[in-house]
Design a protein around this nucleic acid. Structure first.
Lengths: 200, 200
DNA sequence: GTAGCATCCGGACCGTCGGTCCGGATATCC
DNA sequence: GGATATCCGGACCGACGGTCCGGATGCTAC
């Protein structure tokens, strides 16, 4: 990793990423995509694959991170409503919507990560989850929510955009993306007025 | 299965169920409990285990069903607020609370089922999920919700009691069961007043 | 009690998977 | 073009879920 990366190494990495993405997209269940499959599809030995990404989780995380990067950038440096200068309530709604869009467009990957990616199913301990949860918690607080319950509200909002739920709504219940997003937005707004038992 | 079950078979089944339950309870990650482990702990051959339950998913489902049975009975035949004669809104709150209690008390099993149980991660196509979702949908409608969005509300309520989220709240955030249940109840009540975009 | 039979048991066995390892190939630098 | 650090490929490994069948065991009829 120190110094420069050799040209063939870079080329292979990209081939692996592309092949994995394609295979996960075609599979209904991430478990039916083996590491050998990915290596073969990328025209690469299995050793190469593991040297680059460590293990299965690492590979999936790389793919995941690549899809998430634009969103992170938008949230950290972009214009409103996603960017830091937006009003908290609008920002929350925009973030939840953006997450939903990404997951709807990359259902296969998101399911692979939320489900079969980690050693266990510790979605809530994922760096990405923790980061967005913290941000949402702050925003809920900033939008007038009780700090003591902001974390809870953030969890519930994120629970509503879990990849497998979204996939179920699309694949089984045949709901349109537009309908899902509209419901999600209304739900987000509504949930922001949540007040805990006993009042603030 | 036809006719009577032999005594040793019944004994072995119970031993397997007990052993599996114990092992899952001790493990942090269901994947670290292998079928061989279960067979060994039950003092039984692996063939016996698979003949009885078909496969890993079948075993876990049996355990799951056993824990859920009392709740199903309460909902179908019990007294209010869980039973059929309760008022819809109270019944919804009671059902969500009861689900939370079961999942809090059996976190290991619930995570095994929601995560590593099914061939994929098709929680939402599980018979149990579908059944409770249908019931909740009906109840939301009966309590005055727009039938067109009742299914959505039911999904969101169930998303708030997903096993891994509850475990995170307990294990990582160190929240008490009482606090979680209180928040959940308030959230349920609040969400029942959800109205979709455009109004009814 | 016991003979005969259906049922059940155990664990050796199989294919596959994630992950490792190292001899040989290749890019890069001078 | 040669030296060398880096990288590659695929044979290899242990573990896992699941299968199979020869032998053991509980049940029933007499």
């Amino acid at each position: 990793m120190r110094g420069k990366e050799r040209a063939d190494a870079a080329r292979n990495r990209q081939a692996i990423l592309d092949a994995a993405d394609r295979l996960f997209a075609d599979a209904t269940d991430p478990h039916e995509v083996s590491m050998d499959d990915i290596a073969a599809a990328a025209g690469v030995g299995k050793g190469t694959l593991f040297r680059r990404f460590g293990d299965r989780t690492g590979l999936i995380r790389h793919l995941y991170a690549a899809r998430l990067a634009p969103l992170r950038d938008q949230i950290e440096n972009g214009p409103p409503p996603l960017g830091p200068s937006g009003a908290p309530r609008e920002r929350i709604a925009a973030i939840i919507d953006a997450i939903a869009v990404i997951k709807l467009e990359n259902a296969h990957l998101m399911i692979a990560l939320e489900g079969g990616g980690a050693p266990a199913h510790r979605l809530h301990e994922t760096a990405d989850y923790v980061a967005v949860h913290e941000l949402l918690t702050d925003l809920v607080t900033a939008s007038g929510g009780d700090p003591r319950y902001a974390g809870w509200v953030a969890h519930v909002l994120l629970a509503a955009v879990r990849a497998d739920l979204l996939r179920h709504l699309v694949d089984v219940e045949k709901r349109s993306h537009a309908e899902i997003r509209a419901n999600l937005r209304a739900f987000t707004t509504h949930t922001l007025s949540f007040r805990p038992p006993g009042g603030a």
